[in-house]
Write a protein that binds this DNA or RNA. Structure first.
Lengths: 371, 371
DNA sequence: ACGGCGAACGTAAACGTTAACGAAGGTAAA
DNA sequence: TTTACCTTCGTTAACGTTTACGTTCGCCGT
């Protein structure tokens, strides 16, 4: 294989200077249409690919990305932010500044945060579009200005966003359904509780659950769905009512983040050991419920990995002008009593990443890490 | 925050030249002990961290890594190699050459491949130590020569290897046990088939399965374990015998790669629908078994991700002199009939990674990707 | 005293890209 | 014609590290 072609190769092949080639390749002003097309053509035939090391070394601009997420009452978004921060830190090469903009509740202050990020002139945005409609205008504008926006956890369709990183929602629902069917021996009444069918993410999980359950376990009965709008009291009230109406309920798939109120409602209705629960996410309050086997299984949405992926996609686009894919869906992890401890251990390990250094051949310049 | 300290900063602070600083930091000859310690001290107080872009741009040495794995009859190792290749390709910055050395069978040609890699003078090795004892001498030598070795899929203890990337084996076994217990309603006879208890990986899976099963489902009975040594006929014979001896067997956890012979033995013993199977890995022949529900669930070991992680760890060490951790364990994925299709779709997507480019702000230099 | 020889250190040219500045040439206004 | 001002392009100094090569020294042996 011949040496990699560089700017100078293109320049010499055309009898121009590297400056002209650079301007042509980057759509900078000051190049005639003729030479620009000639440069582009030659770049293509020579198979030019930029040397990122040289590019970074030369331009000391630092990228600024805004991370707009829910405030961290639930540990989910803390983990997402941790994943983003980790991946950003791993890119020692680059100089990335991360600005966190959080909003307290679903849809509250979401649009303002986005506008603030735009006004601040960031180079890219990672956001959780809980209310896609309210963000539509802002995201469209960002798209037109060439500012890439990556959605995490849930999609915002038709907004011109660069990419979306999320759990495979259909697969999550389908897995929950198949597990539920197996756990219950293929028969019984089951129900789903979720935040709101208006959110793409939850609607798809429900769809995956329903279609798989009906397809694989035709003897099972799916009751009507509960929407709690992420309000704990609403979750408790509505599920209490559900348990009252269906005393013979065998299983519940809880897609809500507010799974504790649902469990409490079951406990108060004296259905504690009688209902098989499959929940979503993994947070401290859920741990004893899994350990006591009140919850049969929970579907872990890997927030940290979602954060890492989101940043990686955005960064790759900012640096290279392309990104791996428009849609990155992760397979969820299944956590049960059996492997719960391994998960908790993994989490605690990840949150205090003690970097390993090999004494023998470590460069002396790295001694600082020992402290 | 002040600007990053560079070589020149250290040099000026001490009244020496950048060349001396560089030699001191890298243990190169030609520096007095006095100045070397002074440089190291100053580097630490100034918090020097090398600029990797400049480093790479300057030195055009390319890294060579050897990947020693099993020949790709099973799709597992093909996926591992694909993951390595993917991650290597993603590092556009660096110039990494990957040399694949494969051996036909477990322990056959393994040592020779390792010696060949050492003799070829590679900068790092990724290997699958199926017979850790046979590799011990070679790996010890590699360690002394400062050549990092990363183990994939299974560990090779006390060999001085840099790191190991594998599935969390204990968690895998524990998850299988908990699922088995739930599927079977907490009672019944179950058995385990595996390759060999001499392989760390399989021994740990068995340990996780056994302890979780006995701990969580005290009414279940665990029969003695079958070792098939990765020979298909042996797997068939021994499991046939098992089914004959225990006609009331309720479930089998198949950790072997040779799960098909076990399923066939059950079919020939007319136990087809009566036994709940939990298998390992996901390969074409297993797909119809899952679809027909002969296999209740399979534990997917994410070979591609293992490959990616292995390369990433090795690369980070080669470039930065440190690595994220000595032990990277991945959580396995659970594949059932419900989410099978999503997994197959994901695999096919990953194997033909169609890169997405955003037309609007894509640099013209990237036009080549459209072809 | 001379040459030779290391050890210890300085010097400067690479690596490929970016961006600021300058120099041609042409056109339009004075 | 001169002045000014574009457009189009060439020139060059950064960016921080690596590395080959030069330069001092002091020391030894003849």
């Amino acid at each position: 294989m011949t040496r990699k072609t560089k700017l100078l190769d293109i320049a010499e092949a055309l009898g121009v200077s590297t400056g002209t080639v650079h301007r042509a390749l980057h759509n900078h002003p000051g190049v005639s249409t003729m030479t620009k097309t000639r440069v582009l053509q030659m770049a293509k035939t020579l198979g030019y690919r930029p040397n990122l090391a040289a590019r970074y070394l030369s331009s000391k601009r630092n990228l600024r990305v805004s991370v707009n997420t829910l405030q961290g009452t639930t540990s989910f978004w803390d983990e997402v932010r941790a994943g983003i921060s980790e991946e950003a830190h791993a890119l020692v090469m680059e100089n990335v500044e991360i600005e966190y903009r959080t909003y307290p509740r679903l849809g509250e202050g979401e649009e303002e945060a986005f506008e603030a990020a735009l006004k601040a002139g960031v180079d890219g945005i990672i956001t959780f579009p809980s209310r896609p409609k309210s963000l539509l205008s802002g995201m469209r504008r960002a798209s037109r200005s060439g500012i890439p926006v990556v959605c995490v956890a849930t999609d915002a369709p038709n907004t011109g966003r660069l990419a979306v990183v999320s759990i495979d929602t259909l697969a999550s629902g389908a897995l929950a359904a198949d597990l539920m069917g197996r756990f219950l021996g293929g028969k019984g009444k089951v129900a789903v509780t979720l935040s709101s069918l208006a959110i793409t993410e939850h609607a798809e999980k429900h769809k995956g659950f329903a279609s798989t359950l009906l397809g694989l376990y035709p003897e099972m009965l799916l009751q009507e769905t509960i929407e709690d709008h992420d309000v704990e009291s609403e979750a408790y009230e509505k599920s209490s009512q559900l348990f009252k109406q269906h005393a013979d309920l065998a299983g519940v798939y809880v897609t809500t983040e507010a799974s504790i109120p649902v469990l409490n409602a079951a406990r108060d209705a004296n259905l504690h050991g009688k209902i098989t629960f499959i929940t979503t996410d993994l947070f401290p309050a859920l741990v004893p419920e899994i350990r006591s086997r009140a919850v049969a299984a929970t579907i872990y949405q890997r927030p940290r990995t979602q954060g890492r992926m989101a940043f990686r996609v955005l960064h790759e686009f900012l640096v290279e002008g392309e990104c791996p894919s428009f849609q990155s869906t992760l397979a969820p992890h299944l956590v049960m009593r059996g492997n719960l401890d391994f998960f908790l251990q993994r989490q605690s390990l990840e949150s205090s990443p003690q970097r390993a250094v090999r004494l023998q051949s470590a460069s002396p310049e790295l001694v600082e890490y020992f402290g």
